[in-house]
Nucleic acid binder design. Structure first.
Lengths: 250, 250
DNA sequence: CCGGATCATAACGTATACAATAGGGAGTCG
DNA sequence: CGACTCCCTATTGTATACGTTATGATCCGG
């Protein structure tokens, strides 16, 4: 019973520091910090899909009671990052093939359509900011720091969506990017990250030039190439769970 | 001070029956029923924007403790249906002008794009189902039962999105429709409901004929006409809150 | 008579305690 | 020797209790 659980525990206890472990309880701000910590850990693949998230363990790690942990867990469940099984507890969501397809279709639809608005509204400061984010992502990739690279990549896409001015759609994109990270964790190749080439840098230049249509088509190719790089074999009726169980840390 | 609050209390206690008040607690299924009840009440405008949702009152009404109510309230807050002020409690969200614009832009983008998929995948049974929903909406409108009409209208749009086969985007549309109901409650005219004409029925026939592009453009006109019917005066820097406070039940 | 400060109350935020349930292990029977 | 059953434990679901804080009223001073 220790093998599968150990994975989650080890990954979790690997970084058991909370932002403010002080005795003060200013409000529910601390809960939001815990939410960000867990969410980031999931996006960075430090918590892999299928990892169990026991309330007691999380409460102990973050120094709060189960009450706050439950709130965070339910919020993550609403965003489809964790799956809540009625009496079994929470675990990091393992996206199905259909879910993966839905998420990428949604990203294709929303993110491409947003490019035109972004191209119209983008400022020079935004361009500088995006260039910096793309640069840091490339630097992380060069250093083989895949965790940081994944986080920067997701942040880039979210930042881009925020520049559209539509906060509602930006929120959707944020969720979709987080779920995409889960999908990459399950169906992506080990050494092959999603955005390897200099796609993001090229995208920034297109937007800086005000070429909204060009950015949209580029984003379409970009997302499709990521989706195409996934190892999605249509085998829903076989025994996919067993394959994962026998190769837990693959 | 009592005028604005009284509205919420009265509307709430107007219907204090829960789906299953039995002594049995099978799981968190009861919580989901409470969530649906509150969500439906908000969508049907029985809980108007700005109405305060006190935890104790809700707990008393539904016969559960504050714990479950808190979960429901936080879930509704995640969907932007209620607003949680740190130490002030929960209240039905009063969408701002910018939020309204974002929501309708998002609907325009997503729902129109979904029409093509729907036209390809729709079956005869789906057509019959949609026709029935549109018919019931028209019947409710004819009887001047605006609450039921609003609910049926939102259900129609959600059902349509579900037929696209993309559950992720369908979930987004569901959220957007709920928020649209809030927007209509704030910025819509009293007697003028959103989908008055036989737009939905026409839409069904276009989809039944497999005309995805036609349905998309029709949906575009449909949503734009709803948005155009709103009384959105661009006065963000004025004192919009005061105007609403002085005309609570307008 | 008006403005400000203090205090009381009411509501939320958090923690703790109790109860229910599902899963696993050991024991036993066929 | 294998499979089934029963019990035990671990973990979540729910409720209650306590602390904190913001709001509103009252009282005092100017």
């Amino acid at each position: 019973m220790s093998s599968s659980r150990q994975t989650a525990e080890t990954t979790l206890s690997d970084r058991q520091q909370v932002t403010s472990p002080g005795p003060k309880k200013p409000g529910d701000k601390g809960l939001d910090a815990i939410y960000r910590a867990v969410s980031e850990a999931i996006v960075e693949h430090r918590l892999k899909p299928g990892a169990r998230l026991r309330e007691d363990a999380l409460a102990d790690v973050f120094g709060v009671s189960r009450t706050g942990i439950r709130k965070v867990l339910h919020r993550l469940a609403l965003e489809q990052l964790v799956t809540l099984t009625p009496r079994r507890g929470a675990s990091v969501t393992r996206p199905s093939v259909d879910e993966a397809k839905d998420v990428f279709d949604a990203r294709l639809l929303v993110e491409c359509a947003l490019m035109e608005s972004v191209a119209e509204r983008i400022t020079e400061a935004d361009v500088q900011d995006l260039r910096e984010m793309a640069r840091r992502e490339q630097e992380a990739l060069r250093k083989r720091e895949q965790r940081a690279a994944i986080k920067f990549s997701a942040s880039f896409h979210v930042r881009l969506a925020e520049l559209s001015g539509n906060n509602t759609l930006a929120g959707f994109v944020s969720q979709l990017c987080s779920r995409s990270s889960l999908i990459l964790a399950v169906y992506g190749h080990a050494g092959h990250l999603g955005c390897e080439c200099h796609d993001h840098e090229s995208l920034v230049e297109l937007l800086a030039a005000g070429d909204g249509k060009g950015a949209a088509s580029f984003m379409e190719r970009h997302l499709k190439s990521i989706e195409a790089s996934l190892s999605i074999f249509e085998e829903p009726e076989e025994t996919p769970d067993l394959r994962d169980i026998f190769a837990v840390n693959a």
